[in-house]
Simulated scan of single mutants.
Amino acid sequence: MADHRAQDKLAFLLSLVPYLVDHDRVSVAEVAAHFGVPQSQIRDAVRLIGVSGIPGETAQYQHGDLFDINWDDFELNDQIVLTNRVAIDDSPRFSAREAAALIAGLQYLSALPEHADRAAVASLMAKLSRGASAVPSSLTVEATATDGTLALIRESVSTGVQIEFCYRSAQGEAQSRRVDPLRIESFDADWYLRGWDHLRQGVRTFRLDRISEPVITTEPITFRAQDVTLPETLFEGSPEDLLVTIDVVPSAAPLLADYIPAGAVTTEIGGLFRTTIRVSHYHGLKRLLASMSGMATVVEPAEARTAVAEWAAAGAARYR
């Protein structure tokens, strides 16, 4: 009978220790409810864990070879906090810098609507902090002008209502839009909202820095991300798009993959790739070529060459 009791106690401890490791701070009452045992049994087990461990290199139980607990918190507040873990911590750990970088990335992701379950993200950040080889540096993600819009989009998703805003197109036209937010994506340095546009009755892409006066409506969301098949590419063509022929260095050609229409012919001329790209307006073409300085040249039509040349000349004139 004694052997069975010892085996049961060992099995319980083997289950309890990983549970405590996985929780940064937990009350005795919570642990007892989780395992379905009396609170007194949890307290006895915690005291036993406090004198358990493995012998280190000296083959003796030194302080670092034993589990340690915040005894003041345990005795005064009935809270269990492991301050030193042994044996199960032999697996490789993130360095403090690696953990800090991951935590900063998670902070940024928690702002996006498709990651609206921020409790899970917060739990993962806490685990990264505890599991690092040293205390991670305190990092925060710099706020941007679009953070307010992101916050409203996140609220729209979490509350299940549509968002309405004024959208200024690249041509400078402003129009009111009412949208079911589906996904936030980045392209180069810009952020875009992909959503179901109730005005156009279809999926549309909106650049966040062109959104103004966003407000949460009282209309329930009609479509969520799992209800709509989003195109693989961020930008979809339309019959009004302009076709432009360009020469581009081979190493930069992959950067234009989203702009090259299906069936476009690419030829090699003088060590450069000549291909056709699709743009919605010449203003977008100017921005695209500015990001590929020295790597791409407009061949035709003449209107496109003129628009880009005049824009580049105006920019250069500001330095005189």
Rank of each mutant, 00 (worst) to 15 (best):
Q171A: 13
F235L: 01
D197C: 13
Q175Y: 10
T146V: 13
R154Y: 14
A145P: 15
R210C: 01
P231T: 00
Q175C: 10
T205W: 10
A134I: 10
R200W: 14
L243D: 06
F235V: 00
R168Q: 05
F223I: 01
A120P: 05
V248Q: 01
T222W: 09
P250A: 12
T159V: 03
L230V: 00
G202Q: 11
G148Y: 04
T146I: 15
D247P: 00
A189I: 04
I211C: 11
V203F: 09
A174W: 14
E164N: 08
S137V: 02
E164W: 07
E236W: 02
P214S: 04
E173C: 05
F223M: 11
S212Y: 05
R177K: 09
E232V: 02
E185A: 12
S138Y: 14
T140P: 00
V157E: 08
E232H: 11
R130L: 11
S238W: 09
V228W: 03
G160R: 04
E155H: 12
D247F: 04
S133V: 11
L242P: 01
V141N: 06
S133A: 15
E232G: 13
L242K: 05
G195R: 07
E236Y: 03
A122W: 11
W196L: 14
L150R: 13
T140W: 09
R177S: 09
V249A: 14
R200S: 15
S129D: 10
V249R: 08
I163Q: 06
L152F: 05
R210F: 03
R178E: 13
R204G: 14
T218V: 02
L208W: 02
G148N: 12
E232A: 10
D197M: 05
Y167D: 10
E185H: 09
F235E: 00
S212D: 07
F206N: 01
V179F: 04
D190E: 12
Q171V: 15
L199N: 10
R224H: 14
V249E: 12
A143K: 11
P220E: 03
W191S: 14
V244I: 01
R194M: 03
A189R: 10
L230G: 02
V179P: 03
I211D: 06
G237H: 06
V248M: 05
E219P: 03
L199A: 15
T144M: 09
G131N: 14
T222M: 06
S156F: 12
L139Y: 08
E164Y: 14
L124Y: 07
V228T: 00
T222Q: 14
A189H: 14
V157K: 02
